[in-house]
Design a protein around this nucleic acid. Structure first.
Lengths: 210, 210
DNA sequence: TAGATTGTTAATCGATTAACAATC
DNA sequence: TAGATTGTTAATCGATTAACAATC
């Protein structure tokens, strides 16, 4: 079947499939099956086949999937076969770790500018590309002039909503938010949240009492 | 209604409710409603009431919820009214940012030990508590001797599965995994994943072509 | 009392799974 | 051919929502 209002939950699994395929490629494998992929990811083979069926027919009966082919197909579907320019706001401990992370390139993302409010951060080089940290006052202008659509927020919670607002006003359509706060954005803007405390608190319910 | 096989998806939202209630408290508010909470979080008021109804009756008709009371109830349900000891493995850029993060204490988590393989990391103090980084060879022993049940993995992907294995063998029941790989663990062990690349790739599908 | 908001029910909506014909 | 695995259908399962009696 062709492209027709794919459930968000399906889109959400594709990057995980993509990541697993990347490992298979690194292992030198050529062919895999929905069964093997499911076993590795802890989900059913039926779900993988159903998810993929939203976008086309990528496998061969009796054989399975060509790993490299499926990998490229998924990259195209997710639009990460091109590089997306990204702005990063927040140059503290977390921002630094993000700027130093080598895992974005090759996965479709390139941090093009870093911003911070603090005097002692601005003007200094940071991250794997040695980007000079700019004052946050320049955020909107930079986004607009470079047509950037993806932003990462790594500020304290108190500043996050204002930063999101500036990003959105300047044209950002996707925000990865590390600040521990739910952002209010227009419905045409996507937000993904990363909060380690939420992650941990989702598990303690299931732990035996100490 | 009382405690009786709560859906995991409900448990997953409680930390987000808790976080929002924390903000309301910080704002000095006393009372809120499922409507207000839902508006702030972008979910329906019905869902909030339904979620809470799994655990008891916390509100008052015509009035709403006492914020402090509900906050404490959720902390108790999630078992984050006590402190959980945590081990952190990986003392690179990311591990350092996690160790330096002040947001765990007060939310129920206390990093008690940090581990790394690298010679140049071991023996040095790190994080807000100035913990001396231990060699990863000591991980299992430390977990066992202190009865630790929560682990954070911030190693490269290649090392993550082995670390998870060691953690689980030593008694860890909840793992927050920053490494970009799906872990294989026994079904009685919970894992939460934090992968910024997956977060970003979940959004690009929806972006207009450049 | 009048207005507001809960907790809960029942209906709706959506996601997952089992099963199998098709076919490599 | 025999065995394996896909893509898809239909059934099942589970989650969300709308609506409202209860009641503060």
């Amino acid at each position: 079947m062709a492209k027709r209002m794919i459930p968000d939950i399906v889109i959400g699994r594709l990057p995980v499939y993509l990541r697993a395929l990347g490992f298979l490629i690194a292992e030198g494998r050529q062919i895999t099956s929905s069964q093997e992929l499911g076993d590795r990811l802890g989900i059913s083979s039926a779900q993988i086949r159903k998810d993929l069926s939203h976008f086309g027919e990528f496998g061969k009966q009796g054989t399975g999937y060509d790993i490299n082919f499926l990998y490229e197909q998924l990259r195209t579907i997710l639009k990460v076969n091109k590089m997306w320019d990204v702005v990063l706001v927040g140059a503290g401990n977390l921002g630094k770790a993000i700027a130093d992370y080598g895992g974005f390139k090759g996965k479709g993302f390139h941090i093009q500018a870093i911003f911070d409010n603090k005097e002692d951060k601005v003007g200094k080089p940071m991250g794997i590309d040695n980007l000079v940290v700019q004052p946050t006052s320049e955020l909107g202008e930079t986004i607009k002039s470079r047509g950037i659509m993806v932003g990462i927020i790594a500020t304290p919670a108190e500043e996050a909503q204002a930063v999101a607002r500036t990003m959105v006003d300047a044209g950002v359509k996707a925000i990865l938010n590390y600040a521990p706060i739910t952002l209010t954005v227009p419905s045409n803007v996507r937000v993904q949240y990363i909060d380690p405390v939420v992650g941990l608190q989702r598990m303690t319910y299931y732990l035996p009492e100490k």
